[in-house]
Nucleic acid binder design. Structure first.
Length: 439
DNA sequence: TCTCTGTTTAGTGTTTCCTC
DNA sequence: GAGGAAACACTAAACAGAGA
């Protein structure tokens, strides 16, 4: 029909007439609606039918919108506190109440910040909103308004003072996700905030935790996750992801929309819930039991720092490492004979391997073309201890049980290395052991 | 889209081990 | 001890992923 009548009004009207004669009212009304024909030109009864049709559509649309809201509630993380407990702070009087609640020793707060996405804009973004979540409520600090007000009153250091007090107090646990990025933006917003990151104490960056959490169930491995970042962590720990629809909205515009307020509050509040759940049962997320102690107060390890660490690790005080853990062995293992000791040597340590063989140790050596990982495979299959050095140690020690991987000091001669290995594993060599493996 | 951070990769120089 | 092979350390660049 559409192609036949085209845009011709007379043909459109005539088609509706024919449909009324040969089909029914409803079909005629639907086509009249499609052509947007004026009511007065419609045949008797079609206009009423059209009105009914439009009413029905409005109801359907409303139901669809309700269902959308419902599915949002069902599919995404929901703030467990009432809307009345979300406070949007624009004045100093209101902010003071926030201070009193937040700056309490032992307090745990979730902190997040929002700024306007800087598409194509050169320069650092300016933070527009700071969200501070407590167990029973969330404070949204309207940063531009508060700074403006403080400046007008000649007390522009008020807010930086509060933020710095919050971050530097080790007795208050600050939870964030990628906190360094937030603090960088904060420093770019107001120079008074620039040292906040350096003074930070009692900070738990869930981005660091995120990397340690055993995220995927076996069936999920190999499939791309639709969620990422904090949303993925929230999904994994709390069961539902965050609704990130408002993430890239304009956070500078005032007033904020209701959706933005709810999003901002959820983003900060979920940190509290994630943290609480991880602390309650760290083992089920593949975390060590001292989650809190290991993370509070330690900023995330930076690339450079890590490199420095590697540098320091190789020449340890004794010139070697054995681990799987950094803990010191309280007492040496019981003495064993070389026959009871079997090892797999990395291909760099062929000299060491030969020495140990001469002393009666069961030694397997990797070939030059073998990958380091093969050592872990052999160690697991044959119950051998891995002898390696340098960077491969970092990889291999995590693939075998604690204490089953030993890092040899490369700067020592092969003979010295052999002595260190024997001493470490308390292998007692007798005269009968020497060359005992030679036929 | 931009920025930041961390990881991977490639290139270069150094070190170690082995053989002769 | 010399020379070659292999691996490591270090650096810079590229890339990926996360944030807003």
């Amino acid at each position: 029909f559409q192609s036949t009548v085209g845009e011709n009004r007379w043909l459109q009207g005539h088609l509706v007439q024919l449909l009324l004669s040969y089909c029914d009212l409803n079909t005629a009304a639907r086509w009249a609606q499609r052509f947007s024909l004026p009511r007065e030109t419609l045949p008797y009864g079609v206009a009423d039918e059209l009105q009914k049709l439009q009413l029905q559509e409005r109801v359907e649309e409303a139901t669809k919108a309700d269902n959308y809201e419902e599915s949002k509630k069902k599919d995404y993380y929901q703030l467990p506190i009432p809307r009345a407990n979300i406070h949007f702070l624009q004045t100093w009087e209101e902010t003071l109440q926030c201070w009193e609640k937040v700056l309490q020793p032992g307090q745990v707060v979730g902190i997040d910040m929002e700024w306007r996405p800087s598409f194509g804009v050169v320069g650092k973004p300016r933070v527009s909103l700071i969200q501070i979540a407590l167990k029973d409520g969330v404070f949204l600090l309207d940063l531009p308004r508060l700074l403006e007000q403080a400046e007008a009153e000649g007390e522009k250091e008020k807010l930086p003072h509060f933020i710095q007090r919050l971050y530097s107090d080790a007795a208050i646990t600050k939870l964030g996700y990628g906190m360094s990025g937030d603090l960088n933006s904060l420093a770019a917003t107001w120079s008074a905030f620039r040292d906040t990151d350096k003074q930070a104490r009692g900070v738990v960056d869930l981005l660091t935790v995120d990397k340690q959490v055993d995220m995927l169930s076996p069936e999920d491995r190999g499939f791309r996750q639709p969620e990422k970042g904090l949303s993925l962590l929230v999904q994994h720990v709390l069961g539902k992801p965050l609704d990130k629809t408002e993430q890239l909205s304009n956070w500078e515009k005032r007033p904020l929309r209701e959706e933005q307020i709810l999003y901002a509050a959820s983003d900060a509040y979920c940190l509290l819930e994630v943290y609480e759940k991880l602390c309650k049962d760290p083992a089920s997320f593949g975390l060590s039991s001292d989650l809190t102690e290991s993370l509070v107060g330690k900023p995330s390890v930076k690339h450079r720092a890590k490199k420095q660490l590697n540098k320091q690790e190789v020449p340890s005080p004794s010139g070697q490492q054995c681990k799987g853990s950094q803990k010191e062995t309280p007492c040496p293992p019981a003495p064993i004979s070389p026959k009871e000791f079997s090892v797999v040597c990395d291909n760099m340590l062929q000299g060491l391997g030969r020495y140990l063989r001469c002393l009666g140790v069961d030694v397997r050596m990797l070939e030059n073309e073998d990958d380091h990982r093969k050592a872990a495979e052999i160690a697991r299959q044959e119950g051998r201890v891995i002898l390696t050095s340098g960077l491969p140690y970092q990889t291999l020690q995590s693939q075998v049980a604690e204490g089953r991987c030993f890092s040899v000091n490369c700067s020592e001669k092969a003979k010295e290395q052999a002595l260190q290995v024997l001493k470490h594993f308390n292998v007692q060599v007798s005269l009968a052991d020497i060359f005992s493996r030679c036929q």
